[in-house]
């Protein structure tokens, strides 16, 4: 039974949205800036007026104020209370909802431990880092034990390493707690890693909802395909299990190792930015290496797409423009490359 249902919900540029989010699901909404992702969260939370119906656990929550919907909300700007300590920030919702001091202390202590911020309990928001603030805001939104958590770009503004670490940690914590999560991001790589399903929004409408793998193999239309970067789709003839949850698949002249606990893989999707190309043979050994000939070069603003033929296969690589400029790659030249295995998707 779906936990959250949107039925013909309309607000500003978002028109007639219909969506089912399953109980306990980690649901990620991706799309460009202004696509309506935050508006979608605001509708579920009930902080903006809309027409249509929002159902949570089959109950129409339209007449309910935000806090009675059992929804927690992590704002992109976090909106921590600067005049309250970390502990008081986390306890704000509990105090407002009339929890006893004993229960409050227990819950706050649990969340401080869960978010690994016990050492920050007495500090004020201006005394902690951006990543720590995000943890505090998340603890605050989890404190009243919401059934559903809405996350608006929770990793924006963080350095890539912290962002990756935080989003993975977030996913693990929320899955463990069984909280249905709607996570909004513009970062497709982040979405791929953590989502059970991905929804893609364009100009206020939901273009596609699918699992990460299905998203890459069947982009539905060119807008989605362009957003995900037109992945290379390869048919696989053979699958050979290796050790430690890895398999090797053979696709014509390419042998590719990827993480999978499966016996047979039919197709794999390789995002172009997961394909590295070099003009000279790299000295150190690489995973999934290949050699090929450049067939086509397409220059864009910040990137260059290089199409390489490897026997019967063709792979498109997307390189940063400055990296491309530092190499002597032209049509017909021999190039060396590697396929990063952590961003491969497959169909069994």
């Amino acid at each position: 039974m779906p936990e959250i249902q949107l039925r013909n919900v309309t607000i500003r540029n978002c028109r007639n949205l219909n969506l089912n989010i399953k109980n306990g699901e980690y649901f990620v909404v991706v799309g460009e800036t202004g696509a309506g992702k935050t508006t979608l969260l605001n509708m579920i939370a009930g902080v903006e007026a809309y027409t249509g119906s929002v159902l949570i656990d089959d109950v129409n929550v339209n007449p309910l104020p935000p806090f009675k919907r059992g929804v927690g909300y992590l704002f992109q700007e976090l909106a921590l209370f600067p005049h309250l300590s970390v502990m008081a920030n986390i306890g704000f919702g509990l105090k407002a909802q009339g929890y006893s001091k004993k229960v409050m202390a227990k819950k706050i202590s649990f969340l401080l431990e869960l978010m690994q911020i016990r050492h920050l309990a007495e500090r004020y928001p201006h005394q902690i880092s951006g990543g720590e603030k995000k943890r505090v805001a998340l603890a605050r939104s989890l404190a009243p034990s919401p059934k559903t958590l809405l996350l608006d770009e929770p990793t924006s503004g963080l350095d890539p390493r912290t962002a990756t670490h935080l989003s993975t940690e977030l996913h693990d914590i929320l899955k463990k707690m069984g909280v249905t999560t709607v996570h909004v991001t513009h970062d497709l790589k982040e979405a791929e890693k953590i989502s059970d399903r991905i929804a893609f929004m364009v100009n206020g409408s939901i273009e596609k909802v699918a699992t990460p793998a299905a998203f890459f193999f069947d982009p539905a239309n060119t807008t989605v395909a362009e957003f995900i970067g037109m992945p290379n789709i390869l048919e696989c003839r053979q699958t050979r299990p290796l050790a430690a949850g890895l398999v090797e698949v053979v696709s014509d002249d390419l042998k590719i190792i990827l993480p999978c606990n499966c016996r047979r893989i039919r197709k794999i999707a390789i995002p172009p930015d997961a394909v590295d190309v070099f003009d000279t043979k790299p000295s150190e050994p690489l995973v999934n290496p290949f050699e090929g000939t450049v067939e086509k070069i397409d220059r864009h603003n910040a990137t260059v797409k290089v199409q390489v033929s490897i026997g019967k296969n063709r792979l498109t690589s997307e390189l940063p423009a400055n990296a491309f400029m530092n190499m002597s790659i032209a049509k017909g030249t021999k190039v060396y490359g590697a396929i990063r295995m952590n961003r491969l998707h497959h169909i069994e």
Binding site: Y73, F75, F92, A96, Q97
Partner: peptide, 12 residues
């Protein structure tokens, strides 16, 4: 946004 956060957290 702070007022909105307080609303969602159940403050009167």
């Amino acid at each position: 946004k702070m007022i909105r956060a307080a609303h969602i957290l159940g403050a009167s």
